Simulated assay, not measured.
Amino acid sequence: MLSQQEISDRFEIQDLVFHYADLVDSKNIKALRETVFTDDAHIDYSAMGGSVGNVDETLEFLQASLTNELFPASQHLNANVQVHLDGDTATGRVMCFNPMLMAIADGQKQMFFLGLWYVDEYRRTGSGWRISRRTEEKSWVFNTPDFMTL
């Protein structure tokens, strides 16, 4: 049976995962620093063609790539949030279904879909739970534009 603290921790981490997705989809990238990642977080988006690095490098990558001109719409739909608590740290694996609308040549737009897993490490801080490490694992891709290699 889970203790009240363990139940609370699980809900807080689940909320953190959903908050991350909301911030990315609303393109509120700067808020990731204050409310999602630890200062020393390591983020690896390379499985889906993205950056690998610290918080500054990650936010720079997201700010540059998730523009309204290139990606007018996206949704990061998270499910199967699996959390394993260990005191003030935890690990997790989160399923993500990610439809992306992308602007391509001649004013056309193309919808494509990504299936991936986030493999996370979390840490309790004075401001609550934060992601200290996030790695993407590719599951599948569908209908990506011809020039993309994922």
Rank of each mutant, 00 (worst) to 15 (best):
H42S: 15
I13C: 01
L70A: 05
N68Q: 11
M148Y: 14
T135H: 06
N68M: 12
M100L: 15
I131L: 05
E57A: 15
I43K: 03
R93K: 15
S3G: 11
Y20M: 11
D106P: 00
D22Y: 12
Y45L: 13
L62N: 08
L70K: 09
M100K: 01
E121H: 15
W129A: 03
R130S: 03
A79G: 04
T38S: 12
P99M: 10
G107S: 04
P99Q: 06
L66R: 01
L32D: 12
K109I: 02
S74Y: 05
P145V: 11
A90L: 12
G115H: 09
T89M: 08
Q110E: 07
V55N: 04
Q75G: 05
T67I: 03
F113D: 04
F147C: 07
I131H: 04
P99D: 06
S132Y: 06
F11R: 09
G92T: 09
V81L: 04
A90Y: 11
D88N: 15
M148H: 04
K109R: 15
V55A: 03
E121Y: 03
A21L: 09
L101M: 14
T35V: 06
D106I: 00
F142A: 14
D15S: 15
D88M: 08
L77Y: 09
K27W: 02
G126E: 14
G50N: 09
A31Q: 13
L70G: 00
R123A: 11
N143W: 06
I13G: 01
L66K: 00
T35F: 11
G53L: 15
D146G: 07
R33M: 02
D86S: 13
L116K: 03
F147T: 10
N143L: 11
E137M: 08
L77P: 02
S3V: 03
R124H: 08
Y45V: 11
A90Q: 10
T89I: 14
L2A: 13
A90R: 11
N78W: 04
T125R: 02
G53A: 12
R134D: 03
Y118I: 00
R93T: 00
I13A: 07
D15G: 00
A47K: 10
D120H: 01
L62V: 04
I13Y: 02
D15M: 09
H42Q: 14
H19A: 12
Q63C: 01
R33H: 12
P72A: 07
F71M: 10
T149Y: 03
L114W: 10
H76T: 05
P99S: 05
R124Y: 06
A105G: 05
M100S: 02
D25W: 11
R124S: 07
S46L: 03
D120E: 12
A64I: 00
L101I: 14
